[in-house]
């Protein structure tokens, strides 16, 4: 089966080059990942700044070209799509960016962001139909058209603007929505609403969602599978319940422990080996990239890059602590990803 969107052995290096003084920054390191057309899935990609998660999103969207490896849309390189293929790609794969304030042109009414795709892709034969389509789409993401259409962006809250972005993505009936930190700039009280509208799109319209975030809690709430990234590589991957509830990779453990729990009786615990935050980050050429911060670091972690060990049926972790477990064959992360329930259940 051809994947809808696939990254094959993708590496992305920023800077460096022949005349540069310093070696480049490896944002993504021999990374493979794919999203199938069927069944629709919600996958979370979690990592800190610098983990390569946004670079991955940009590569998948064709906004940046990989240094090596390839990104394929239905088997074709996204950097070299023909006109028709490209149009199809632009409809099939939609994006929601982090900042709901910057994506709008303040001079236009918010209708503009919905009208443009309708015109470009000729989604409606007449003005009336276009209006009707816009209203339906806004309703689908839980907005009231009379409260949103005809307004300028500054008249709406951050949460409303971000939901209009969700509506815009939905308008094109995509197969996949890549949501890059869609709720990190909205109030906590509105996050739930936006995430719920994304989940509804998945359930009602069978759209796959790639939820890119630094927030493990929301990732846990909406996704089926999760990929934890550390400095351009997969640290842990698998069923979200396993990864979040019983993290195996020391980095995932650190992430889970760092979340401030909304319970004063549950003190913030977890002990990282205190790393001098001002020490320069050494370029790791051999060994595990997490070794310097890892409380369980072993000799072998300094010498070899850990492969993904399949610690459970539905989970793999890139850590030599689990070297007794079988290695994940090839690069197909799908092996450990839980198969989602049929949408609508």
């Amino acid at each position: 089966m051809t994947a809808l969107l696939e990254a094959r052995h993708v590496t992305k290096v920023f800077g460096g080059g022949r005349f540069a003084k310093a070696p480049g920054t490896v944002a993504l390191d021999d990374f493979s990942f794919r999203v199938d057309a069927e069944p629709p899935t919600i996958t979370a990609i979690v990592g800190e700044s610098g983990s390569g998660k946004t670079t991955l999103a940009r590569l998948l969207l064709g906004l940046a070209a990989p240094t090596s490896g390839e990104v394929l849309y239905r088997g074709q390189d996204v950097q070299r799509l023909s006109g028709d293929e490209r149009r199809r790609f632009l409809r099939d794969v939609q994006v929601i960016f982090q900042d709901p304030y910057e994506v709008y042109n303040p001079f236009y009414k918010v209708d503009h962001v919905l009208e443009t795709p309708i015109k470009k892709f000729r989604l409606a034969p007449s003005r009336e139909k276009a209006r009707q389509l816009m209203e339906e789409t806004l309703n689908a993401v839980g907005l009231r058209p009379d409260e949103t259409l005809g307004r300028h962006p500054h008249q709406l809250s951050g949460g409303q603007r971000q939901r209009i972005m969700v509506a815009r993505a939905l308008l094109l009936q995509p197969r996949l929505i890549i949501a890059d930190e869609p709720v990190s700039m909205v109030d906590a009280s509105l996050r739930a609403t936006i995430l719920e509208s994304l989940r509804q799109l998945h359930l009602k319209f069978g759209i796959s969602i790639l939820y890119i975030t630094h927030d493990l809690t929301t990732a846990y709430q909406i996704s089926q599978n999760i990929l934890v990234m550390y400095r351009g590589e997969v640290a842990e991957v698998g069923d979200v319940d396993l990864v979040v509830k019983q993290p195996r990779h020391p980095y995932t453990q650190l992430l889970v422990q760092s979340i401030p729990k909304a319970d004063p009786n549950h003190p913030w615990h977890g002990h990282e080996i205190p790393v001098d935050p001002s020490a320069p980050v050494a370029a790791v050429t051999h060994g595990c990239k997490f070794a310097d911060r890892c409380p369980y670091v072993m000799d072998i972690s300094r010498q070899q890059r850990p492969p993904l060990f399949r610690t459970d049926e539905r989970r793999a972790a890139a850590c030599f602590l689990y070297k007794e477990s079988p290695q994940l064959e090839g690069t197909d992360l799908e092996q450990v990803m839980a198969v989602p329930l049929v949408p609508g259940v």
Binding site: S189, A192, T193, T217, T218, Q221
Partner: peptide, 22 residues
Amino acid sequence: NLLIASLPSLEEKGAFQGIPGL
């Protein structure tokens, strides 16, 4: 009360909800 309920938790799935209205 609603503000506390709007927090996503790591214990329970689907246990958080937005505050309706503006």
